[in-house]
């Protein structure tokens, strides 16, 4: 049916196939690299926008350490005044890493949170993205007067039914974000943050 299987024909055929396929892939990669990057940037931007007040300007990513891991945060400004921070925070959930974007506004209040990626069980822990009883409680959550642990552990967080581990991880991610932001040395946040950042830090020190 096919070409005879001699050593030359086999080597030529395999080499040609690999070369052609790699070339095709290289081409497709070059074409799609830009859209993929844009999509990822859009997802990140959308999640930042979701956790901070509307209509503010978002700074470039800045580095900080959250829960002992390198992460990043963004400062939101409106009319030259700092109105909030978005901190990326990763903890370990039930099924694997749980990464959140946590929006904080000066004065020690959570504005909103959003899940960037998770591997929780569908129908159980995965409800941390959709169960309104769980997600709505973060809006305006006062991290100074309330404790960021689930009620079972003596805190103020309503856990998702049957998913305590996920809820704990979620609360810990927010707590880590708050602590990390409080630990940011003033010069670092001076870029565009200024007084508000200090106010925020001050707020936490009173805790």
């Amino acid at each position: 049916m096919a070409v005879k299987s001699t050593l030359t024909s086999m080597v030529v055929c395999l080499t040609a196939t690999c070369l052609i396929c790699s070339a095709i892939l290289g081409g497709v990669y070059a074409v799609t690299a830009a859209p993929i990057e844009k999509v990822n940037a859009d997802i990140l931007k959308a999640s930042i926008g979701q956790v901070l007040p509307e209509g503010c300007e978002i700074s470039e990513a800045m580095e900080l350490e959250v829960g002992g891991l390198p992460s990043e945060y963004y400062v939101a400004t409106k009319d030259g005044e700092t109105v909030g921070f978005a901190v990326k925070s990763t903890t370990v959930g039930f099924g694997g890493p749980l990464t959140l974007m946590v929006g904080l506004i000066p004065g020690g209040t959570v504005y909103n949170t959003s899940v960037l990626s998770h591997s929780e069980t569908p129908g159980l822990g995965a409800k941390c993205t959709s169960d309104p009883k769980f997600t709505e409680q973060w809006k305006g959550f006062d991290v100074i007067s309330k404790k960021l642990t689930v009620k079972k552990d003596g805190g103020d967080v309503d856990a998702i039914t049957a998913s305590t581990i996920t809820s704990r991880a979620y609360a810990l991610a927010i707590k880590n974000a708050v602590d990390a932001l409080a630990a940011v040395p003033a010069p670092c946040s001076e870029v565009s943050a200024g007084d508000a950042a200090e106010e925020m830090i001050g707020g936490n020190d009173n805790d």
């Binding site: 690999c18 396929c21 497709v28």
Partner: peptide, 30 residues
């Protein structure tokens, strides 16, 4: 098919399939 020597047809097919799968991966990511 008619250009591929018989003894190496499986590796060649796998490479072809893997190429399309990776193309699909990029398209879906984008």
């Amino acid at each position: 098919a008619s250009l591929v020597p018989d003894k190496v047809h499986i590796p060649v097919y796998i490479v072809v399939i893997a190429t399309f799968v990776t193309v699909l991966q990029f398209l879906m990511q984008a």
